[in-house]
Design a protein around this nucleic acid. Structure first.
Length: 489
RNA sequence: GGCGCAUUCGUCUAGUGGUUAGGACACGGCCCUCUCAAGGCCGCGGCAGGGGUUCGAAUCCCCUAUGCGCUACCA
């Protein structure tokens, strides 16, 4: 039997990083086993629907490199997979359950339920079939009459009194729950929409899903699903409940404690390969001593059996480290063209491809993300406005000004403005006076960049170019230096 | 409260009865060095606790603790 798996998000806004990982594992599993990956939109809660989120979801999933075989915008025998467009199907199955005695009509209003719940503080509420308003207490004739009169009703699952429900989870092994702890779950809401449980079971069966790979938060509801599969006489798909992604404080990863939308990380400038790589390794690891994998390798190595049981904390420091590894190893040309996007976003237009290539080549080892280069080395994009006064104090002495002036003259005579030539000429100048490079290189850095850190100074000057370097030195000596001398007193 | 799941360095993890418990990130030190990085070397640091089973347990069983999840006409 060929593998068929699905990713079934709710269109409530954006793609959550936990959702991305679930999607990724489903994708890996499908590709590895040459199966199909289906996208199904679980939009059965009309109150939570956010306009445009489906498009957003698909866009982000595509960014991550996930391709679907069936579902919205893909086509296929079941397309479009919007649960909101399949209401009649769920209703039909819910009615069938009622007819066969596995479910029943109930008429309790929200207020009545709230009141009943109020009597049982601390979440001890369990729907009491024998005292609430439903077809058993009212009588089936009365119930049908009420329905025909248009009185709102729901269909609830008739959970057996005390029956042990066992199931096997690929990641967690054997799990047993007693049905006495399972509530009479609503299957069909009064607005005619199904709840997750019904829609999910019906669709997974109809769409011939072989493996359900989803988050651990669904584990407690598996018994309800098993009951449904049994009631319909359907085979239960293989189950695999993924460990949760956690905040630093080990609670379920959520907003308010950092960014949880994949789009936020795209906006920050993480590479898709790095982000996917990082997310994929949260809860699963193909080996002991490696952490950089291409999507193709992740697919080849993926094994559900090796997925961890415990939740994993989403640590952005590790993400930065992985992103940096990609930054150091990607081809310069690719980086440069991507860098143009970030640079122009900051308003720096008219920079040549060649210049961007050089800037990236020089600075990528010093930052974690491509756009970070702009903040790390702003002097590559505009002349420094601020000068680090502490840095000035540390390396400046009485003869420094004279040396800088001499070096300025020296530089203006160099035609082959490469870092090697610059280095040799400056060192020669210093050696003639028995001076060390560090006595002048720092003031030079301050004058040209304003900062105390950055790439090699000669390399930096080469990239900036002769004209720019000379102008900056001039400007510094004439306009800035008197100011800082004053200031540092 | 009930039910369920989980627990290896700070973090991500390797490990499936015999290992000096391995790696990566972070952190600290050294080297390199014009600064900042990168890189190299070294270091710090862990099997939640208690009982068993066994010649032998991070690995198997039980209990405890802790954490998390679920407990909606939300998914």
């Amino acid at each position: 039997m060929s593998v068929r798996v699905r990713f079934a998000p709710s269109p409530t806004g954006y793609l959550h990083v936990g959702g991305l990982r679930t999607a990724l594992y489903n994708y890996f599993f499908a590709r590895k086993h040459k199966g199909k990956l289906i996208l199904r939109i679980e939009d059965t809660d009309r109150t939570r629907f956010v306009e445009g989120s489906v498009e957003n979801l698909i866009k982000t999933l595509t960014w991550a490199g996930i391709e679907f075989d069936e579902g919205p915008h893909v086509g296929g025998p079941f397309a479009p997979y919007f649960q909101s467009q399949r209401l009649d199907i769920y209703r039909k199955y819910a009615e069938e359950l009622v007819e066969r005695g596995w479910a029943y009509y109930a008429f309790d209003t929200t207020e009545e339920l709230e009141e009943a719940r109020g009597k049982n503080p601390n979440f001890e509420f369990k729907y009491d079939r024998s005292s609430m308003r439903n077809q058993f207490t009212l009588g089936i004739d009365k119930a049908l009459e009420m329905i025909s009169q248009g009185i709102p009703y729901v269909i609830r699952l008739k959970v057996p009194e005390a029956q042990e429900i066992r199931f096997y989870d690929i990641i967690r092994g054997e799990i047993a729950v007693n049905s006495k702890d399972v509530d009479d779950q609503i299957l069909l809401k009064s607005d005619g929409y199904p709840t997750y449980h019904l829609a999910n079971v019906v669709d997974d069966h109809l769409m011939e899903i072989t493996h359900i790979i989803r988050g651990e938060e669904w584990l407690p509801s598996v018994p309800k699903h098993i009951l449904l599969y049994n009631a319909f006489g359907w085979e239960v798909p293989k189950l695999a409940h993924l460990p949760l992604l956690l905040n630093k404080d080990k609670t379920k990863l959520s907003k308010r404690q950092g960014d949880v939308a994949v789009e936020d990380y795209i906006a920050k400038g993480y590479f898709r390969e790095a982000f996917v790589n990082f997310i994929a390794l949260l809860g699963w690891n193909p080996s002991a001593d490696r952490e950089i994998y291409s999507i193709q390798e992740l697919i080849e190595k993926f094994e559900l059996e090796k997925v961890n049981k415990a939740g994993a904390i989403f640590d952005i420091v590790k993400l930065d480290a992985i992103n940096a590894k990609y930054l150091y190893s990607k081809p310069i040309d690719e980086l440069a063209s991507e860098f143009r996007y970030w640079v122009e976003k900051r308003g720096y237009n008219n920079l040549s491809d060649d210049y961007l290539r050089k800037v990236v080549a020089l600075l990528r080892e010093r930052v974690k993300k491509l756009p970070d280069i702009i903040d790390f080395a702003p002097y590559m994009f505009e002349r420094p406005k601020h000068f680090d006064i502490e840095y000035f104090k540390k390396y400046w002495n009485d003869s420094t000004k004279e040396h800088l002036e001499n070096i300025l003259t020296l530089l203006s005579r160099i035609d082959n403005f490469t870092h090697q030539v610059l280095h040799d000429e400056v060192v020669k100048y210093l050696e003639e006076r028995n001076l060390k490079l560090k006595e002048v290189i720092h003031p030079l850095r301050l004058a040209i960049t304003g900062l105390s850190y950055g790439a090699g100074m000669f390399e930096t000057m080469e990239v900036l170019g002769k004209e720019e370097v000379i102008q900056r030195l001039h400007y510094f000596l004439n306009n800035i230096l008197p100011e800082i001398v004053n200031e540092s007193k």
